[in-house]
Design a protein around this nucleic acid. Structure first.
Length: 440
RNA sequence: CGGGGCGUAGCGCAGCCUGGUAGCGCAUCUGCUUUGGGAGCAGAGGGUCGCAGGUUCGAAUCCUGCCGCCCCGACCA
């Protein structure tokens, strides 16, 4: 993409409303625009990141056996009356009426709807297990939205729902998501730690919040430092192996980790001092087993091998991609701007023509731009008629992992400069070596 | 919902107390000069001062009501 033809409205100054660093940088880097309290437009750069995040989420859901669907944002109140949640949900749910004065709502979540889909089609245990997920906009009319897309009213959520014949099956479904979440966040350059979460009326140990550590995180968390060095399950993870995933689950829950709501001071005190970690964190995922709560209320049952009807055991599994974008920035930035992990960077390479209009730098940049693009590297070519300083500042702000800097001085020796955003390291290399260097 | 704060040009702000024809920086446009870390000079454009009432000869400024946004607390992907 040529920057001169792109839409990247970066700001030199920080809009007043932005308090935390991710919100400030998302506004300054021209990623989002707030349209109303907690409601955002996603501008081109922000949308690219959001799509990268979604792609990783989708790949890992699919790998773990999830099947993607897409349910609507607007739901009928009738479904929610069946489960009893229409009255129970409270004012966080945005209630609306259509022209026929039928009660509708902007979905805050989709348990009812997915259960309705399930019960409409699935009759036999032979069709289980099933895990349906979608990535869709949700609306929760938060009392106080804040922190940009970290806590917005309209937000993107990946929500998956598992259906199993019994609790043992549901536990395996849970473990699949557990492993998938560890992989998902790790691929985004984040170290996530599963922490005990409130299980509500069901009880048991089957609810975890996935927390990433960040100074500006919303929750206070306590855990064993050794989690940071735990090995994340690899691509070769066998999601069919009940024993394997159960072992993984047990390993990743063997040490203490809890948010302040579930904090057990005595258990924490038992951790050796050197391993104690008290920090702030951001919840980026939440997985939950809730048994037959909805299948019972909404009559979602299958015939089992015994010839009898069984209400299915369900779980739900959320990830907030629009929050993750902010969370990634919270975890990865410096004074100059964002530092995108390679996997979610809006472009992999920024190509800086320090003297647009100069025939030598223009020609070199055109060649490099064509080569990089042909090699499948997403490249943002800063071909604007701006001063070098403006281009450097802008490139650092939007945080592309690599900067290829083409200026008249080094070009006279046939060289260009390669800068790694994360470390600030620069190296001069022959222009012909750039592609090979970036392809590794 | 309780407490606090803010709405003046695209962004950041001053002006308000003590009413008198709306200003600064950045950005934008034009020209010249500059050209490796958000350039310099000269010029130009851009504002129903959040909205509605009221007081006054006169309101960005004083009064009343409303709307919007932000921060702190209780709730949440």
């Amino acid at each position: 993409m040529r920057l001169s033809r792109y839409f990247l409205p970066t700001l030199r100054e920080t809009p007043r409303e932005a308090e935390i660093v991710s919100h400030r940088l998302m506004l300054r880097a021209g990623m989002v625009r707030q349209q109303s309290a907690g409601i955002f437009s996603w501008l081109p750069l922000g949308l690219r990141v959001l799509n990268k995040v979604n792609a990783i989420v989708r790949e890992e859901q699919n790998r773990a056996g999830g099947v993607e669907i897409l349910m609507p944002t607007i739901q009928s109140a009738d479904l929610w009356r069946e489960s009893g949640r229409y009255d129970a949900y409270g004012r966080e749910m945005l209630r609306i009426q259509d022209r026929h004065e039928r009660d509708m709502l902007f979905g805050p979540t989709n348990e009812e709807m997915v259960t309705d889909i399930f019960r409409s089609y699935v009759r036999s245990y032979k069709d289980l297990p099933l895990n349906l997920y979608h990535i869709q906009w949700k609306f929760r009319d938060e009392i106080r939205p804040r922190f940009g897309t970290m806590r917005s009213r309209e937000f993107l959520m990946k929500d998956a729902y598992s259906f199993d014949l019994d609790k043992e099956g549901a536990r395996h479904a849970y473990n699949r998501m557990f492993a998938a979440y560890l992989r998902t966040f790790a691929r985004m350059g984040l170290k996530s730690i599963p922490m005990q979460a409130d299980t509500g009326p069901i009880g048991g140990d089957l609810s975890h919040e996935f927390i990433i550590l960040a100074e500006t995180g919303e929750s206070e968390v306590f855990c064993d430092r050794n989690y940071l060095d735990f090995e994340v399950p690899g691509e070769d993870t066998d999601f069919e192996s009940r024993e394997g995933l159960q072992g993984l689950f047990e390993r990743w829950t063997s040490l203490y980790a809890a948010t302040s709501e579930k904090h057990d001071a005595a258990a924490y005190a038992a951790i050796p001092d050197a391993d104690k970690l008290s920090a702030r964190g951001i919840e980026v995922g939440h997985i939950f087993y809730f048994g037959t709560k909805y299948s019972k209320a909404m009559n979602a049952a299958v015939t089992g091998p015994d010839g009898r009807e069984h209400e299915v055991h369900m779980g739900s599994y959320g990830i907030g991609p629009s929050r993750l974008v902010a969370a990634i920035i919270e975890a990865s930035h410096d004074e100059a701007g964002v530092i995108w992990p390679d996997a979610v960077a809006p472009f992999q390479v920024g190509l800086l023509n320090l003297k647009a209009g100069d025939s030598a730098t223009d020609a070199a940049c055109e060649t490099l731009y064509a080569e990089l693009s042909a090699a499948g590297l997403d490249t943002l070519y800063d071909d604007r008629d701006e001063r070098a300083g403006a281009k450097f500042t802008n490139a650092d702000l939007i945080g592309l992992p690599w900067q290829v800097i083409v200026g008249p001085k080094s070009l006279a020796e046939g060289k260009v400069e390669l800068k790694r955003r994360r470390t600030g390291e620069r190296e001069l290399l022959p222009i012909g070596d750039v592609l090979a260097r970036l392809s590794t």
